[in-house]
Write a protein that binds this DNA or RNA. Structure first.
Lengths: 223, 223
DNA sequence: TCAAAAGTGTTAGCGCTACACCCATGA
DNA sequence: TCATGGGTGTAGCGCTAACACTTTTGA
């Protein structure tokens, strides 16, 4: 029996919060198909390469985010036959959550607001993949400590709260939020230092703790 | 640039509750590699076939579960280079949750208890895939109405509770469970009929409602 | 002195846990 | 009549939402 073979790519949904907006790393296509459209950074997998290794390699090569500790997890695999008009390509999407970093110096690689991207024409099924990644991120903020992956190494409770508010698109009560996250076991580690970079009374600076789960969860307010 | 191509398979983690145990559908291998080991039912994807379509086809061809309404969702993709000793094979795993059905009439296809399978040698990385599927199912019972996918078309609250108890491996309080699931919006639809098949006072028969989320969630008791 | 943001206290209400208790059947 | 499981009531408690209030800074 002959076994059909397909081309396999890894595509990256890399999200961050910058300029008060949830943003994703995009690659501007400069050739057909989809010339001029945005796409997700990605590329073909090597024959001797594990999937997470390929994701890290492409994060460095295509996204310009080498040697940066970024949370990376597998999102889903997309493989309907006509998603690439040239040939059968199956794509394993990875979701990355990053602090607000300068991306690649290439003009082709840009952070762009998710709200804009979903209103624009995208290459292939990348709008769908982006939407799935955003929804995964929104859901995971509820019951994991991943929100801190959007923050720099040291951050205040208010900065962490802004991450939740921007990713979810809902305001949260600053006082209840503060009690909740500072009370959660191993979510935050106090550094002892303070900052006034947000104005007002000085705020404690925290680092990420080693908790992965958030129990009880921080539930999104329902509309 | 030449694009490397890989063989792509779909593997199925099909779970059910039967004889008081969480069980999975297995395929007994009768050739090398891994001759005599259990494996997950699966097979190569066709070149013109979408991934969920391949999963449904293999559910019929390999698992003997054709034309059965079974919940099927993508689980994850496994692709480290040596997982198949013969050639590079990347596998997209799907998770299926089924009521207690007779599987294929082939002797090669068997329902087997998960507890036994994880103690035995499995083909390829199928033990790992099975474990991931079981963990996904356990987690989804908490915040979705998927437990009913393990039940026949009509079932009692106690039968639904047994699903939770067996999948999670923890006893639940029958009275609180009853209040919780009958109070949840659109989780269950009363048929008006009753049954005494479990002994004691007649129990209401229910059908699945159209709710997908369970809010608030049914949290596993913590040890 | 004022505005702004950090952080604490307080209260009402909801949902969960634990268990007492009653109900309806088969044997 | 008894055993068995179905189903309801209820008290206590932890968590949450809502918001009043105090603290500490920069301007």
């Amino acid at each position: 029996m002959t076994v059909p073979r397909v081309a396999l790519t890894v595509d990256l949904v890399v999200l961050t919060v910058r300029e008060q907006r949830l943003s994703a790393l995009t690659w501007r296509r400069d050739r057909d198909p989809y010339d001029g459209c945005w796409s997700l950074p990605g590329g073909f997998i090597q024959l001797d390469e594990d999937l997470p290794v390929a994701a890290s390699r492409l994060m460095a090569e295509r996204a310009g985010l080498a040697d940066v500790r970024i949370h990376l997890e597998q999102l889903a695999t997309y493989g309907y036959p006509d998603r690439d008009p040239r040939q059968r390509v199956v794509s394993v999407a990875y979701l990355g959550l990053a602090p607000d970093l300068p991306a690649s110096s290439r003009a082709q690689v840009l952070w762009r607001a998710v709200a804009e991207l979903t209103a624009e024409r995208a290459a292939f099924d990348h709008r769908r993949i982006l939407r799935d990644g955003v929804e995964r991120a929104r859901a995971k903020l509820e019951y994991t400590s991943l929100a801190a992956a959007f923050c720099p190494a040291e951050f205040t409770v208010a900065e962490l709260r802004r991450v939740y508010e921007i990713v979810w698109g809902t305001p949260l009560d600053p006082r209840n939020f503060h009690r909740k996250v500072t009370g959660a076991d191993r979510f935050l580690v106090a550094t002892g230092r303070t900052t006034t970079r947000d104005g007002g009374r000085p705020a404690q600076l925290y680092r990420r703790g080693d908790a992965e789960q958030l129990r009880p969860p921080m539930l999104r307010p329902r509309s």
